[in-house]
Design a protein around this nucleic acid. Structure first.
Ligand SMILES: [Mn+2]
Ligand SMILES: [Mn+2]
Ligand SMILES: [Zn+2]
Ligand SMILES: [Zn+2]
Lengths: 140, 140
DNA sequence: TAAGATATTGATAATGATTCTCAACAAGGG
DNA sequence: CCCTTGTTGAGAATCATTATCAATATCTTA
């Protein structure tokens, strides 16, 4: 398995708990999840797993590049498996629903930045807020 | 004063503490500040002001549209006065310095979204990470 | 300008997410 | 199978932010 190789090549060990956390993320690809949500589902695969272990696994996965942190500006952080497919989210300020957005204009902006500044951009984060189609009609 | 009017028109009262917090933000326009940073400076203008009051003022100012929340993905939130000048920040992952960026390609992206989805975008958040000119040379 | 209704404040407790500690445990190379 | 060492779970500790609540300040009205 891909995860297994990434772990061992860096001296990390493969464990039942890490497999569980990764599988939960993989089974929910494209859906940002909180640590607590991951914990609940991971318990079905690795009974007894603790929240600290979930946090440790998520952090490690980001370091290994197999997961991504998704900043939705809520109290807690969200994570999702890194499928290599670049995308962002549009969050409805009315119902909280999240829609994936595949378009991204960062390339153009990064060109501008390269030309006009001395800053080297290596990553970006984009979030969009507004109203989803279900909430638009009754928008106060 | 502008703040004074915005407050009273909504039934809020003008207080020494709110003036202090606002002045601190205004004197540091274009520099995202944490509540604790605001507190320290606000104490010079309104001795005795507490951290809870700072948080309450910041929240209120965002509601009134005179301040903005800036998400830098740190543990604490940052705030700055809303000067009406749209911008974002580039954060150096090496030294933590922040550079203001005036360019923004959201307009184009919002057009795409309007054409391709039913979502109505009302606001966005953009963050850029990378290396500032001082850190580029020694970049590990 | 005094009085009253009520918005606001400061101190402090409470909360919630995340991180830390540490002894018990498990992975995997030899 | 053994041993070294990475990993785990429980619970304490942190840290930012929010909630409480009695005391106080503001602003409108008389
Ligand atoms: Mn981000
Ligand atoms: Mn934001
Ligand atoms: Zn909605
Ligand atoms: Zn730098």
């Amino acid at each position: 398995m891909e995860l297994s190789r990434r772990l061992s090549s860096r001296g990390y060990r493969r464990t039942r708990q890490r497999d569980a956390v990764f599988d939960v993320l993989a089974e929910n690809a494209g859906r940002p999840m909180k640590a607590e949500e991951v914990l609940v589902l991971a318990k079905e695969k690795a009974p007894g797993i603790g929240i600290a272990t979930v946090y440790r696994a998520l952090e490690l996965f980001v370091e290994l590049g197999v997961a991504q942190q998704v900043h939705l500006h809520e109290r807690s952080q969200h994570y999702e498996v890194d499928t290599g497919h670049h995308h962002h989210y549009m969050v409805c300020v009315s119902c909280g629903s999240r829609e994936q957005l595949d378009a991204c204009t960062m390339d153009k902006l990064e060109d501008v930045i390269k030309d006009e500044t001395d800053f080297l951009v290596t990553s970006h984060c984009l979030g969009l807020w507004g109203y989803c189609s279900s909430c638009l009609p009754g928008k106060a």
